[in-house]
């Protein structure tokens, strides 16, 4: 292909015409192209970042009556915490290489007499498979249990979508409706990131809300009551839960 046949003018011995082939060596061209490809491959962002939508309430003063008070039976509080190493860096789990985030949770209202609704410790864990069936673990299992009315419907919808009975759009809108269905028993989750929490822990918690189709949740800062509950947990289990704030916090 890259050859051009040319007739020699035949000034050589015997006067015979000799066919000469001119070959163009494409190797440097390929080399250069490869370099360019490498450059473009490294410079491009093929995978686009994802986003997570978040709507927070305004800071404007809201009247007491207008405030949504979570019902005692529906409330579920998650207190987040990230463990740090002595080097002031988030601690990673050696087996998985993931940052260690703890979730302390209780259902209902906090009980400062420490009789009921005590804190329990969980962590963010992905799903596993047991005999081919998806099994939830960690905090996801608890949230799923709390939101089981919605999740049962959601799983049905998902199965319909997987079997191509409904389109993705229909599935999305039905799932949204289902998550917001006030006739079902749905929890109100209060996410409380502690002073040592990293941004990742918050994203993990918001992710769990999405996975478990929890439509009502809020992000709040921990209160004194939460500290008391953590202290109680510390006394009960002997674990060190309350650690000094290791990172500088932003001055308010």
């Amino acid at each position: 292909m890259a050859e051009v046949q040319e007739h020699d003018s035949g000034k050589k011995k015997k006067g015979a015409q000799k066919k000469m082939t001119i070959r163009v060596d494409f190797t440097p061209m390929v080399d250069m192209n490869m370099l360019l490809i490498t450059f473009f491959m490294l410079c491009t962002t093929m995978i686009k970042s994802q986003t997570l939508q978040l709507t927070l309430p305004t800071n404007e003063k809201v009247q007491k009556e207008q405030q949504n008070q979570a019902k005692k039976s529906e409330a579920l509080t998650l207190i987040l915490d990230t463990e740090y190493t002595d080097n002031n860096l988030p601690k990673t789990d050696e087996a998985t290489g993931k940052t260690v985030h703890n979730v302390y949770w209780f259902a209902g209202l906090p009980d400062t007499t420490f009789q009921t609704n005590l804190l329990a410790k969980e962590s963010f864990m992905g799903d596993t498979k047991e005999n081919g069936v998806k099994v939830q673990q960690g905090i996801r299992k608890i949230l799923r249990e709390q939101n089981k009315d919605v999740m049962t419907n959601y799983d049905e919808l998902k199965a319909q979508w997987k079997n191509r009975e409904i389109s993705k759009e229909t599935f999305d809108s039905l799932a949204k409706k289902n998550a917001a269905d006030s006739t079902l028993t749905r929890p109100v989750v209060i996410i409380k990131p502690g002073p040592n929490t990293t941004y990742e822990a918050l994203i993990n918690a918001l992710d769990e809300m999405q996975i478990n189709q929890i439509a009502r949740y809020s992000i709040q800062l921990p209160t004194h009551t939460d500290t008391l509950l953590l202290e109680n947990y510390q006394q009960r289990t002997g674990e060190t839960v309350i650690r000094p704030t290791v990172r500088k916090s932003v001055v308010y």
Partner: peptide, 29 residues
């Protein structure tokens, strides 16, 4: 991901103050 929540919270709070309380958080899939 390792930024303390308190730092991010300050930004959230300021956005809330300015009534820009709908926003998104950049993540990887």
């Amino acid at each position: 991901k390792d930024t303390p929540f308190t730092t991010v919270e300050t930004v959230f709070d300021n956005l809330q103050t300015m009534s820009l309380n709908k926003f998104s958080l950049m993540t990887a899939l």
